[in-house]
Design a protein around this nucleic acid. Structure first.
Lengths: 153, 153
DNA sequence: TTAATAACGTAGCATAGGCTACATTAATTC
DNA sequence: GAATTAATGTAGCCTATGCTACGTTATTAA
């Protein structure tokens, strides 16, 4: 019968790596909060590069959500200082938003190139990179770049 | 002055890859829904292996959230058929939950081993793997395994 | 056997991120 | 210049995932 108050020895063992694991998972959750911001600034940057401006409808199409969701999220990004927006006008990146976008873009490209270098097909690389890129630390990104250099040699 | 109805040519260009990109991002969002389930079944599996049962408090400690969050999530996992639970009792995995846990564990270990093989330090590998593992397709996982085999040769 | 306490449950709040339905604004067009 | 329509905004709903505060249950210990 499982007891409500467990053997302290077992508890200690169970808890041994718990704080460390908890910290890792908390960190991963924190990263997730940034994923959407990164996806948005990347999309805004692309649209501005392609058409000169980022309209809410086009962001909605590119991100696969409704314009309502985009509109609300843009409000949050504006509060976060990543974009500027005025009612019924296009959205643009602030300097901070632009820097983040560039960082995301290069990181994305590195991850895709690295996966491709492992022989993974293009569409799979693109798909996986979209999820992976938000969880790649600078150290790991460097390791990817190094591996790419070595492959090309 | 930005116009509300844009040049159709520019619009078409902007929208060119939008559906594809939207689908990728939607898929990534869908994956996210499974991430927490995977983290939970892994934690439950570990606790059962270590102490014979998975109590809510211990899950809370390991996952870095309060027991309330765990309790509610366990309810969802039960509805999803991944765990069994009764009030004031420990949580256990169903067969499906167990299978998922094993799959997650081996995938996690593969990702960590692969990152380690790139020269990335242990703690960084563990940290990044926690985020990356949920976004690794079977193809990419195979590529990781192959790369590991080649490294060891 | 009763009191203490650890574990768990419940109520209720917050935020993020989705949605539909409908109102409003601004650009185009007639 | 008025009508049309695309783009945007607003209201309101949903789920998931966090939380605190407080009540309840079950085990342990006095």
């Amino acid at each position: 019968m499982p007891s409500l108050k467990r053997d302290p020895a077992e508890k200690a063992r169970a808890r041994h790596d718990a704080p460390k694991q908890a910290e890792i998972l908390s960190q991963t959750r924190r990263e997730h909060a940034n994923e959407i911001a990164e996806d948005y600034v990347e999309a805004i940057r692309d649209l501005v590069a392609e058409t000169g401006e980022a309209r809410i409808v086009d962001l909605a199409k590119r991100l696969g959500v409704t314009h309502v969701t985009v509109s609300r999220t843009i409000g949050r990004l504006q509060k976060a200082g990543l974009v500027t927006s005025r009612p019924y006008r296009a959205v643009f990146l602030t300097e901070r938003g632009g820097n983040l976008a560039v960082e995301c873009k290069t990181r994305h490209e590195t991850v895709v190139a690295f996966l491709r270098s492992l022989g993974i097909p293009k569409h799979v690389s693109e798909m996986d990179a979209e999820g992976i890129e938000h969880h790649v630390s600078p150290e790991t990104l460097d390791a990817f770049k190094t591996a790419l250099r070595d492959t090309r040699k």
